[in-house]
C-alpha cells in the first residue's frame, strides 16, 4: 500500500507530510496538554465564572454580573496593592543584571567555583520561615544590623519592615536576594553553553575580559536573560510569601505594603469572599499577560537566537 501511495501521491506528498508532521507535533505536546487542561485551564475557567458571582464560603452562588469588577476598580485597597506589586517587580528586575554579572564572575574564577555556586544557592534552599526571621532581625529598627551600622555614622534608621513608607522597598531587596540563586543557575547554564572557541579566538584578537563580556557573553546569553526576565516579572507580580513572613498581619505597614496576591488571599481565604477574590485574580492575570506579551514583543529587538 505504501508503494501505491507514494507513487500516486507524488504531488500530494507535501500535504500528507504536513499532516503527519502536525500529528507528530501534537503527539509531543499532548500529555502536557491534558494535564494542563484538567489541572489549570478548567479551574481557570471556573474562576472566571466565579468572578461574576457572589459565592458562599462553602459553595453555592448567585450571578451578580460585573459587580465584583466594578467594586474592585473603586476599591482604593486594590490600587495600592497593584502599585506595590509593580514597585516590587521593578526592583526585583534590577536583580537580573546583578545575577548576570555574578554568574559571569563565578564562571571566570578558577578556584572555589563549586563553593561559590553552593553559597549563592543557599538562600534558595532556606525555608521561608527562616528567611523571614533572619531578615526581620537585620531590618529591626531598634537593634538590627543595618541600623547599628547607620548609627556609627550618626544616622537614625527607620523600622525597615514596620514603617509603611519603606517596607515594600525593604521587602523587594529580599526579593532580589532570594531570586539571585535561581537566576544564577539558569544564567550559569546559559554561559556554559557558549562555545569556548569564541572566547579563545577573541583573546587572540586581544579582547579583554570586559570587552568579551559585552561582545560575546551578553549577546549569546540573551535567550537566557530573556527567560530569566520573563520569569522574574511573573513571579514578582505573584509575590505573596515574603510579605506574609516579613510584614504579616496587624503590622502598621501591612495595609500600605500588601500586594495583589496578598489581597486575593485575604479576600478568598480569610474573608471567604470567593467571587471578589476571583475577580482580583482574573484582573491580575490579565495584567501579567499584558506585561509578558509586551516582553515577547520587545524581545525581537534584543534577543539573539544562535
Amino acid at each position: 500500500m505504501s508503494a501505491v501511495t507514494s507513487r500516486r501521491g507524488a504531488t500530494r506528498r507535501p500535504a500528507l507530510l504536513r499532516i503527519s508532521n502536525a500529528l507528530t507535533g501534537l503527539a509531543f505536546v499532548a500529555p502536557a496538554l491534558v494535564g494542563l487542561l484538567a489541572l489549570y485551564i478548567v479551574p481557570l475557567i471556573s474562576t472566571f465564572v466565579t468572578s461574576f458571582t457572589k459565592t458562599g464560603p462553602f459553595g453555592g452562588s448567585t450571578f451578580v454580573g460585573a459587580d465584583n469588577y466594578l467594586s474592585l476598580f473603586l476599591d482604593a485597597e486594590f490600587w495600592t496593592a497593584l502599585r506595590n506589586s509593580l514597585i516590587f517587580t521593578a526592583i526585583v528586575l534590577l536583580g537580573v543584571p546583578i545575577a548576570i554579572v555574578l554568574a559571569a564572575l563565578i564562571n571566570s574564577v578558577k578556584r572555589f567555583r563549586t563553593t561559590y555556586r553552593v553559597l549563592f544557592f543557599l538562600p534558595v534552599v532556606t525555608l521561608p520561615v527562616a528567611v523571614g526571621m533572619v531578615w526581620r532581625y537585620i531590618y529591626n529598627g531598634d537593634f538590627g544590623v543595618i541600623n547599628q551600622a547607620l548609627a556609627a555614622f550618626g544616622i537614625d534608621g527607620p523600622s525597615w519592615v514596620a514603617d509603611p513608607d519603606v517596607a515594600i522597598y525593604a521587602v523587594a531587596i529580599v526579593g532580589i536576594w532570594s531570586s539571585l540563586g535561581t537566576n544564577i543557575i539558569i544564567l550559569g547554564a546559559g554561559i556554559q553553553a557558549i562555545s569556548q572557541d569564541l572566547f579563545e579566538a577573541s583573546s587572540l584578537d586581544g579582547a579583554g575580559s570586559i570587552r568579551q563580556f559585552f561582545a560575546i557573553t551578553l549577546p549569546l546569553l540573551s535567550p537566557s536573560v530573556f527567560l530569566v526576565s520573563v520569569l522574574s516579572v511573573i513571579s514578582s507580580l505573584q509575590m505573596f510569601d515574603l510579605i506574609y513572613v516579613m510584614i504579616g498581619r496587624g503590622s502598621p505597614a501591612e495595609q500600605g505594603s500588601q500586594t495583589v496576591v496578598y489581597l486575593f488571599f485575604q479576600k478568598a481565604f480569610v474573608e471567604y469572599d470567593r467571587g471578589y477574590g476571583a475577580a482580583i485574580a482574573i484582573v491580575l492575570l490579565v495584567i501579567i499577560m499584558a506585561v509578558t506579551a509586551l516582553q515577547f514583543r520587545l524581545q525581537r529587538k534584543w534577543v539573539f537566537y544562535g
Binding site: 489541572l39 485551564i41 479551574p43 505573596f240 485574580a281 499577560m289
Partner: peptide, 20 residues
C-alpha cells in the same frame, strides 16, 4: 495556554485541584 498557566498565581487553583 502554557504561558497563561505560568502567569496565574498558584493559590488560585487550590480549591479546584482539591476537588479534582
Amino acid at each position: 495556554l502554557f504561558l497563561i498557566m505560568l502567569m496565574a498565581p498558584s493559590q488560585l487553583f487550590l480549591i479546584a485541584q482539591f476537588d479534582l
